[in-house]
Design a protein around this nucleic acid. Structure first.
Lengths: 143, 143
DNA sequence: TAAATTTAGTTGATTTTATCAACTAAATTA
DNA sequence: TAATTTAGTTGATAAAATCAACTAAATTTA
């Protein structure tokens, strides 16, 4: 592959790093860190997953994860019930309060994206989505 | 915009966050942190910029930046010369050693991308580049 | 099946990063 | 010329991440 192509990919990476940083800014207005918000998102989408599942999916240190989950429990955001199948593991879920916190984060995240694309024509929005799904398809050949 | 479209964008964001994390992994094998590597990249591409320029471009706290630049100076990676026009500001540049460190990082970064796309056909690689440049064009209508 | 190893999760100690405020000195504005 | 703003440094903390040691349950293996 040509060097200029690699440069283009790297330019996109820098550009999109900024986009992601921008879109994550709403988390600063929430009572959660980025890591915490990602955990809450996962818990909402993978109910009853274990800490190990989160560790793998979010590539997070298990010590750090364990501590965050402990604060969630103390804050009344999550419930845990011991696994029947594995006495070491516990299944995690959001409580009503945790779910409601998720929904706030989720709404803020949607709003931020809405803001990003509201000035873009419907046609271009559709093109944008198409480019994104195509990138995923192509990169999935490698990942 | 439809909610499902926003969801697709968010899915892409999560996906691409992982891609970027993967591609940044080589920095763990270097003597630099991610923030340091980004500063070195900028210094190499914007020679004689000031700390303020870096602060704006990298959206980094000026205290943190000041400290990193001080370690660079002590490590012999950067040189600074006082601005003629503004007695408070200093123009920064990479020394030979700094430039050589940049080149190591740069090569590792290129290698990592090469690894990512080597299994992708030339046609798909070209499509990938096209999708990326188109995304930038579309989002630039907002940013 | 008993011993050895691996895995899930917790905890402690430490380091790395990031944040925030106070401060100096030069530049700009009023 | 006084008041304000800006560039950069420094100190004090806080937040985040890393690493290792440890318990207890599960799995492997000999």
């Amino acid at each position: 592959m040509k060097n200029s192509s690699i440069d283009s990919i790297r330019e996109f990476n820098r550009y999109y790093t900024d986009v992601i940083g921008l879109l994550d800014q709403h988390i600063l207005d929430s009572p959660f860190s980025l890591a915490e918000a990602r955990i809450i998102y996962e818990l909402s989408h993978q109910p009853n997953c274990t800490a190990s599942d989160l560790m793998i999916r979010l590539k997070m240190d298990k010590g750090q994860l364990s501590r965050i989950l402990e604060t969630f429990r103390r804050r009344g955001l999550t419930a845990r019930k011991k696994s029947k199948l594995d006495g070491r593991a516990a299944h995690l879920s959001l409580t009503g309060k945790g779910q409601s916190e998720f929904e706030k984060l989720n709404q803020a995240s949607n709003d931020q994206i809405g803001l990003l694309i509201k000035k873009i024509s419907t046609d271009d929005q559709n093109r944008l989505l198409n480019h994104m799904t195509e990138i995923i398809k192509i990169l999935n050949q490698s990942l």
